[in-house]
Design a protein around this nucleic acid. Structure first.
Lengths: 344, 344
DNA sequence: CTGTTAGCGCCTTCAA
DNA sequence: TTGAAGGCGCTAACAG
């Protein structure tokens, strides 16, 4: 029951026996600066309480040309299974800075995207967060307001707009290090080489993994290519195992692949981590649902969303055009300490 | 690069050689009604194009006291794994009616909730969608603007506010019917009786299942109680199977439970659907990831979100205080046609 | 310290 | 068919 009828600042001022100006100053916390008498202040605050006054933010926005609102334009993020955490992070940061989020989902349609950007600019949003579900490098829409846009989970091919991304390469190194630290020194394969052209996650993760293995003087067993889906991973690994391969460790490029891999291993009677150690990427809920839980390198979506908002609201803070957020390791129980030297 | 500087309606009018009034009429599609000359109209539209004019929605809102914006207040929906589809549905419907969504997540904090409602009312949202992650029956916050609020996925204990909910009971009947149609007539158990007090989904699903079984003169084997999580379902079913029980069919009260059930069955060497038929609720992505895919009764979140927006924007349409949306069956491969009579 | 005056950009009677 | 004028509610110079 938010009465919210027609109580205006003028009403408050009248009741408090001051001018609207004075009331405005007080309500905007400028009473000290303006040296308003404590008495006037008290009377105004009373009037506000008595009348149940609430400022009309539209009117304020019309004057100040600022709305304390951030526009979020996404492809499928809001509906996505874990990428929605990007929104959650952004939302939390926005709230902490007294901003609200207006969201718009484009479903990948460039025309809808254009419309949404216009809509939001029309609504005077203070900035726009352009968010993608998967980490991609794209030719960014030309109509985004340059000064006030931050790319989240994607980067501009022209590198003009500031962007926030997970540090995939370091994530790859983390995964590799974790396996190496467990004593795995042979028979380690990567599952899920990514064929999608724009997607960068797979490529970078793989690069990090390779780098770390090379640095440790250990050779990677090989790379199995498959789509990033449970079913495709299952098919690929199942067939591969069927041809007699017996890996010691598998690096799954995301949690869904890990699920498919678990299914394939199980179908061949191989145990995790007894026979095969598994590690993956994403750190999603799914990782915790697998049995045993798969150790996963987490996509720091919440943190990324938060950082993006900070950058958007704090122009000066922009450390450069690209911010990489660390991917923490979420321990599971999918990695066995390998016998010093495997003797299968 | 949305120039969006300072092109006002007045500029457009000036360039077109008409008054702001005329320009306003034209841009609001009232030129016919106002019998504006086609020539004036053409000139105005040209001016709009030339100047790249965009209306300032704040100014408009100040006048019209309408913002074409819907406030969405959720507990954890936006970050939730599939409940975010509620938002997706609402968003689509909102866009179709030229509205945008402002979202706010309360993380279950009533104080935050109060603040958010105020914020949104201050911003003159045209209505509020109050959304919960799980289907619950709750004492709804008192400060929601009565005329313009729709509850989504929850209902008011006082039954005052209109609400949109999945038709859980019918969903339960659907699940039961599906199993019965496959010839299962004994050894059917339900997994996941829900202990949470406010949650209604489990209770209603179970009621529907029971009703259908009773109607068919078939006795339910029993009900296994466990939390609605993969791990808990696994533990419960695993222990139960360990005590020698051998079900023919299992109805899992959600997809996560189904996942735990699959794990438990697998651990006991029981095959789906060979040894045991399984059906579940939610129809989430997870259902499609299980091997074989589990047949699931879908939570119609997208449709619910859409309907909620319709009701919010179309006061007259409200058919009553509570709208139930049908839960469609999403076929998987987890149900075997039982031998006419089991003879284990 | 406080009030007066002017708009922000748009919509909408009321006259012409 | 079009224009002039007023005001939505609030903020910010600029006086006093």
């Amino acid at each position: 029951m938010v009465g919210a009828r027609k109580v205006t600042l003028a009403d408050v001022a009248a009741r408090a026996g001051v001018s609207a100006t004075t009331a405005s100053y007080i309500l905007n916390g400028r009473s000290a600066e303006m040296r308003i008498s404590t008495d006037a202040e008290r009377r105004v605050r009373e009037a506000v309480a008595d009348l149940g006054y609430r400022p009309n933010r539209n009117a304020r926005s019309l004057r100040t040309a600022t709305t304390k609102t951030i526009g979020v334009i996404t492809d499928f993020v809001a509906s996505g299974m874990f990428s929605s955490r990007l929104i959650a992070g952004a939302n939390a940061a926005a709230r902490a800075r007294d901003h609200l989020l207006v969201i718009g989902e484009t479903e990948g349609d460039p025309e809808v995207e254009r419309l949404l950007v216009e809509e939001m600019v029309d609504r005077q949003v203070d900035g726009i967060l352009y968010v993608t579900r998967t980490t991609v490098r794209i030719p960014v829409p030309t109509h985004l307001p340059v000064g006030r846009t931050v790319l989240l989970n994607c980067s501009d091919v022209d590198g003009e707009l500031p962007s926030v991304l997970p540090d995939e390469e370091e994530g790859g190194r983390t995964a590799a290090r974790t396996l190496l630290a467990a004593g795995l020194r042979e028979g380690v394969y990567v599952v899920g080489e990514d064929p999608t052209p724009q997607a960068v996650a797979g490529i970078q993760r793989l690069a990090g993994i390779r780098e770390e293995f090379t640095a440790s003087g250990v050779a990677l067993g090989g790379v199995l290519s498959c789509d990033w889906s449970v079913e495709d991973a299952y098919e690929a690994v199942h067939a591969w195992l069927g041809r007699g391969h017996r890996p010691r460790g598998l690096v799954c490029l995301n949690d869904r692949i890990a699920m498919g891999v678990y299914q394939a291993l199980s179908a061949h009677g191989l145990a995790v981590p007894g026979d095969v150690s598994v590690i993956s990427f994403d750190g999603s809920e799914l990782a915790t649902w697998l049995r045993p839980r798969v150790t996963s390198v987490e996509l720091p979506f919440v943190e990324m969303g938060g950082l993006a908002v900070e950058l958007l609201l704090d122009p000066a803070r922009t450390p450069g055009t690209q911010s990489l957020v660390a991917m923490p390791l979420v321990p599971g129980a999918s990695i066995g300490r390998a016998a010093a030297v495997s003797r299968a």
